[in-house]
């Protein structure tokens, strides 16, 4: 039954104007970057900085928006012989997949045209798309949870944006301040653990470990490499990102099962 729900919400979403705006944005971004610097590696690094901030933002906005705007569809489905979790999982997959497809197609097309397959950076590029996909699935799940817990649309939207702001900006701020404040203590473990709790940092580390440019790794990334080595480090960041998807999704089914419609 999930597949039926997925089918209808996906077709609803890809008919929506916003999916195209998002796709076109990435197309323009990809072409512009490649036009400006024909060096694929450099383009990937610039893209990384955009993708790790933008995919969470778009995932967050689409997640809440779709939840509130598709209330009619949800209520209709709730009266049908479908398990509740299938309704919400189906819609969740619909949003996440359509956003991921926009990302992959939008960046993939320019890179293909500029000869990605002849270049050595194809794996780096795939890692970038994988991180973007992870962040999309994570932030859509988080924002759908927020929407499920807030009947009030305005509040739900506000909390969701705050959540994005927290992971994208505030978290690193608090982190830096605590590094300065607790300068005298050994902070390696603290730093490692702290980075696991922020999916944005985590995906940045995952990409940079793959790129293997030590100058860009930053403090956290360098620690990751020192502590776990490149392979284990990548593996750990991948696994933790997976947990970041699984936990919010299972919370989503729990919250939806308790809700009155």
């Amino acid at each position: 039954m999930i597949s039926k729900v997925l089918k209808y919400s996906f077709s609803d979403l890809i008919r929506s104007r916003w999916s195209y705006v998002y796709l076109v944005f990435y197309l323009v971004l990809g072409f512009t970057l490649l036009f400006l610097n024909t060096n694929l590696s450099k383009a990937i690094i610039t893209l990384m900085n955009i993708v790790v901030i933008l995919t969470p933002l778009i995932g967050t906005i689409f997640g809440v928006m779709y939840y509130y705007n598709s209330r009619e569809f949800t209520e209709l489905l709730l009266a049908q012989p479908i398990k509740r979790s299938s309704i919400f999982l189906g819609q969740y997959l619909g949003i996440s997949l359509s956003l991921t497809i926009s990302l992959v197609a939008g960046l993939g097309i320019p890179f293909l045209i500029y000869g990605l397959f002849q270049s050595s950076v194809i794996l780096d590029f795939i890692m970038l798309l994988l991180s973007g996909a992870f962040l999309t699935f994570i932030f859509v799940a988080l924002s759908v949870n927020i929407a499920l817990l807030n009947t009030n649309k305005i509040k739900g939207f506000g909390y969701a944006i705050l959540m994005w702001l927290f992971f994208a900006v505030i978290y690193d701020g608090i982190f830096l301040i605590s590094l300065v404040l607790f300068d005298d203590y050994p902070l390696d473990q603290f730093t490692l653990v702290a980075s696991l709790f922020n999916p944005i940092d985590l995906s940045r580390i995952m990409i940079l470990l793959k790129l293997d440019i030590s100058a860009l790794l930053g403090y956290t990334g360098a620690l990751f490499q020192k502590f776990f080595g490149t392979y284990l480090g990548s593996f750990i960041s991948f696994g933790t990102l997976l947990l970041w998807v699984i936990i919010p999704v299972s919370l989503m089914t729990r919250f939806s099962n308790k809700k009155d419609f």
Binding site: D12, R15, S70, R71, E72, F73, E75, L76, A79
Partner: peptide, 12 residues
Amino acid sequence: GYLPQIARFPDN
């Protein structure tokens, strides 16, 4: 068969 009090359908 359920007929809801407020008929809300996907508008598009």
